[in-house]
Amino acid sequence: MRSAFPLRDALLALALATLGALGCGPWGIVPGGPLLGSARPLPADASFTEEHALVAIETRSGWLRHSVTVLCMAAEGRLYVMARHAPGKRWVQNMVADPRVRLEIGGELYDGRAVRVDLDPAEADRVADAFLRKYVGVAVERARWLPGPPAEGDTRAELWAFRIDPPGDAS
């Protein structure tokens, strides 16, 4: 029997799909909720993440969990994530307020702790170099991270970077 209200049925299906999406991780560019499952601490050597183009990161805002898909790169064995137009991003603000994060990398879950590093020139430059190699596919003679917000009239993005440490690592 055909429904007399196909639009209502479609909205019902959409609502169910949305509820389902909120109950699990992000779906492409669409943010999601908690990354459900058993997680282990992020290893001290995170070089294995170089095999993965995209990872999911779950951040905390009170009892709510908010997860998004992000770029990640490894430099000297440490894992980094970065955000363009960072001040306006919810997941970034969540990490600033509460550094506990959960990552989904290649189907495995890892717990970690986010530390902002873009204001440290040496570490930020290493992240910039790793980003160019991994996502642009080039090595350059020198890569320098431009910290902080752009000056008035400068059209560049504002970029923040976070190192993801193992959860108990306070270094």
């Binding site: 170089e50 183009a53 363009r84 910039a128 980003f131 160019l132 190699r133 991994k134 996502y135 642009v136 596919g137 080039v138 090595a139 350059v140 003679e141 020198r142 890569a143 320098r144 991270w145 431009l146 752009p150 059209t155 560049r156 993005a157 504002e158 970029l159």
Partner: peptide, 23 residues
Amino acid sequence: VIRRQFAIEIEGEARPVGKMAEL
């Protein structure tokens, strides 16, 4: 382009190292 999009200043040659990405 990299300065505008990613706030990263680069200098010199850009040599391909593509394992995961190419330009």
